[in-house]
Computed example of a mutant assay.
Amino acid sequence: MRVLAAMSGGVDSAVAAARAAEAGHDVTGVHLALSRNPQTYRSGARGCCTLEDSRDARRAADVIGIPFYVWDMADRFHADVVDDFVAEYAAGRTPNPCLRCNEKIKFAAVLDRAVALGFDAVVTGHHARLGPDGLLRRSVDLPKDQSYVLAVLTREQLDRSIFPLGNSTKAEVRAEAARRGLGVADKPDSHDICFIADGDTRRFLAERLGEAPGDVVDATTGAVIGAHSGAYGYTVGQRRGLRLETPAPDGRPRYVLSITPKTNTVTVGPAEALEAAEVTAVRPVWTGGPAPEAPLECQVQLRAHGEVVPATVRLDGGELRAELHRPVRGVAPGQAIVAYRPDPAGDVVLGSATITG
């Protein structure tokens, strides 16, 4: 097959491209330039949007012996990922920018362009598997598994995707990179959000949304017990940085329970008030087979690297409802709910949706 290898400049994508070439595919490497000004996004080896990363990707392509290009997708990335991130926080939700980048950039904009140029598929270094049946599965390296952030992909996108690393651990990938003479073998993994240079999300949002003072309210009494400079700086389940002026009568810590942009209010309360027994979500994507017509017993994950719980899932028009078999704390609107097949391994992705409540 003629395939396009998305090369971020990290070790995973480099080894994925090398494996694709070794498997006999006609591979072309491409690095996505996602920052309008590379120095404004994370600098150094931890990011995925830097000049250093572009150079690392080019050097890896040279070692592998494949053609290499840089595609400028900065404007598309800013509109679909960065602006969306800011808008979601302004609306009181907690988005996952990696999920949105996969959905809008790597497997929409890139894949569409690749197909238009005559490529058959896109290769990435994600830690996930596609079985012989075409179903998306967890990686064998569970701590590195990325099936959660890929579950938003459609069946058609998965049919044109190749994930060569799903059957390997990260340690095995690094060892292979060293054997192949790839200079990124020991390059650190990227962390945090690639487009927030110093990792300070609250500052990043404040610069774009401005100061917006409001009240912090106790859920039990309705009393104002603190103030904030912008509700966008909080997320459901947060404990630290609440700056409460009045301690709880029972002396126990308080957590963010909800964010209401309409009244610019942050509501806090005890940990047990975070427990959710039912989750609603919209924009369901069902890739593990036909959409279920009857209630489905499955396992669900509600946050990247979060716990997995058994649930009963129903589809009601354009909405998904999940009854959790045991309560989960800190479910945040804006995150994804991903359903997995309820077999002993629980590794097959059935579908996903965006949590609304």
Rank of each mutant, 00 (worst) to 15 (best):
R239F: 00
T221D: 05
E319N: 02
A304S: 13
R240P: 00
V11F: 08
E307D: 14
G241C: 03
R208M: 07
G288Y: 12
L165D: 09
G24I: 09
C298Q: 07
G288P: 12
G92V: 09
A128T: 04
H191M: 08
A121N: 05
T94A: 11
V256E: 06
A109F: 09
A91N: 13
G181E: 11
G199F: 11
A18L: 14
V349F: 08
L320F: 02
A16V: 11
P143H: 07
L111F: 09
A90K: 08
A185W: 15
I66K: 05
A291P: 10
E88P: 00
A227Y: 02
L153P: 01
F85V: 04
A277E: 14
N264T: 12
T356V: 15
G306M: 08
L99D: 02
T50L: 00
A281Y: 08
Q146N: 03
Q39P: 00
R341G: 02
L130T: 04
Y148E: 05
P164M: 10
R19S: 07
C101V: 09
D192I: 01
A5D: 10
R58P: 04
S8Q: 10
D75H: 09
V110D: 03
V331S: 02
D72M: 05
K144F: 00
L130E: 08
V328Y: 07
N167P: 00
G9N: 08
Q146C: 04
D62G: 05
R203A: 15
D343S: 11
R203W: 06
F195G: 13
K187Y: 09
A277Y: 02
M1Y: 04
L296F: 12
D133F: 09
V122T: 05
L34R: 06
V217F: 01
R113F: 06
W71F: 10
E156C: 02
R239D: 03
R113E: 14
T265W: 02
R180P: 03
G306D: 05
R179F: 00
K262L: 13
D12E: 10
H228G: 04
A345F: 07
P284K: 08
V70M: 03
M1A: 15
I259Y: 04
T201N: 10
K104V: 12
R314E: 15
V331R: 04
D198W: 13
P132V: 06
V224D: 03
A212H: 14
A231I: 05
G226F: 06
R283E: 14
A336I: 01
C298R: 08
R202N: 14
L296A: 13
V152N: 10
R243C: 04
G318S: 05
I259P: 00
D250Q: 08
G230W: 03
A294N: 13
